[in-house]
């Protein structure tokens, strides 16, 4: 890229920044007050934390598609048949890492369970719990305590897509009501918890899979 073009890009970026800042400062207050709307419908959502209510009830289809995107990314990652020389096994015979994993992983799983349960009424939920589970899965794999990642069997595959399938099943069952993912208010809390449990397991495995298959390509 030559110097003039480079200067033009920098100049353009500066101009864009100035324009965007001016636009943000001049932005009028939105006509629709979303926080008030969310607060008004919170009692019917089945949970008491507004972010969880938005994620899994009011805009549940966002979350449904998001898990599909994650699964798609993993499939895309695995579809690029990796060359052999990039695979490497972590060095065996390390005593510290397995010990650390044995101590850490139960606490990680416990934290994930708490985060999942807390999501209904305070910050937390399936995504945060899934991220913690993913960390636990990576630690287990690095310590060679979870060989399932080397040769993924039926259980791991089911775990990877289980959350999405469960979510889809709930969405399909509720489709009889005429609207996508409109939970009946008396069942909403239970359904959201059920979906969140499935999502936590699947998100954890998917995130760990994205990390581990990228670091250490194997065929699924």
């Amino acid at each position: 890229m030559n110097r003039a073009l480079r200067a033009a890009v920098v100049l353009g970026a500066g101009l864009l920044a100035a324009l965007l800042v001016a636009a943000i400062l001049a932005l009028p207050v939105p006509a629709v007050r979303l926080p008030a709307l969310v607060a008004a419908h919170l009692p019917a959502s089945g949970v008491t934390h507004p972010v969880t209510a938005v994620l899994l009830n009011f805009r549940g289809y966002d979350t449904l598609l998001e898990v599909a995107v994650l699964a798609l990314a993993l499939v895309g990652l695995l579809a690029q048949s990796p060359p052999r020389e990039l695979t490497h096994a972590p060095s065996p015979g390390e005593p510290v890492l397995p010990l650390l994993a044995r101590v850490l992983v139960p606490f990680l799983i416990l934290s994930a369970g708490y985060l999942l349960w807390a999501g209904a009424h305070r910050p937390g939920g399936a995504f945060q719990a899934g991220a913690v589970l993913a960390a636990a899965a990576v630690v287990l794999h690095l310590a060679r305590l979870w060989p399932a990642w080397d040769r993924p069997g039926r259980g791991l595959r089911l775990g990877l897509v289980g959350g999405l399938l469960l979510f889809l099943a709930v969405a399909a069952a509720l489709l009889a009501g005429g609207t996508l993912l409109r939970y009946p208010p008396q069942l909403a809390g239970t359904l959201i918890l059920l979906i969140e449990i499935g999502l936590t397991v699947s998100l954890g495995l998917l995130l760990a899979g994205l990390f581990l298959f990228l670091a250490e390509p194997r065929s699924l």
């Binding site: 507004p50 972010v51 993993l74």
Partner: peptide, 20 residues
């Protein structure tokens, strides 16, 4: 809470896109 939920969704999608 609506943008919060959208950003939370976006972060996870960004992680997946980065991995791909």
């Amino acid at each position: 809470p609506v943008p919060h939920a959208m950003v939370l969704t976006g972060i996870v999608v960004a992680v997946a896109a980065t991995a791909l």
